[in-house]
């Protein structure tokens, strides 16, 4: 589900390769992100541009891994959200919680 794209000094760039982010794969997503964090011990930027549909269960999984990484002074950054998913983050006000970028380039050019 998750593939590492690039490892930078302070952040790991990964691609989330699913179209439907739902109740069905939320727990697996959470387990994979935490496994990656346990291996690399750095913040993780998740490219979600392949995701077409997301439900509240998966949203909860994203918040859960964010809380886990924050407790270790790391961060979860989101990249490439579709218009509907951007609207969902605005609706739930999670856009005030997460750093959200259009592309990996926006992160690497900082």
């Amino acid at each position: 589900m998750i593939k590492v794209y690039k490892e930078l000094n302070n952040i790991l760039l990964v691609n989330l390769n699913i179209k439907e982010a739902s109740l069905e794969n939320g727990d697996a997503f959470k387990a994979e992100v935490i496994k990656l964090f346990d291996k690399y011990h750095k913040s993780i930027a998740i490219n979600m541009s392949a995701v077409e549909y997301i439900d509240s269960s998966f949203l909860g999984s994203i918040v859960s891994v964010f809380k886990h990484l924050i407790s270790f002074q790391a961060d979860v950054v989101l990249v490439g959200l579709s218009k509907d998913i951007t609207n969902l983050f605005a609706l739930t006000r999670l856009d005030k919680v997460f750093k959200i970028y259009n592309s990996f380039d926006e992160i690497t050019n900082q």
């Binding site: 964010f66 809380k67 739930t92």
Partner: peptide
Amino acid sequence: GDEVLDVSNLMEHFGLLIITKS
């Protein structure tokens, strides 16, 4: 939002909230 957000306290169940706000 006047206070600093306590991230550890963020809810993880959004179903009712999404329907109510939509």
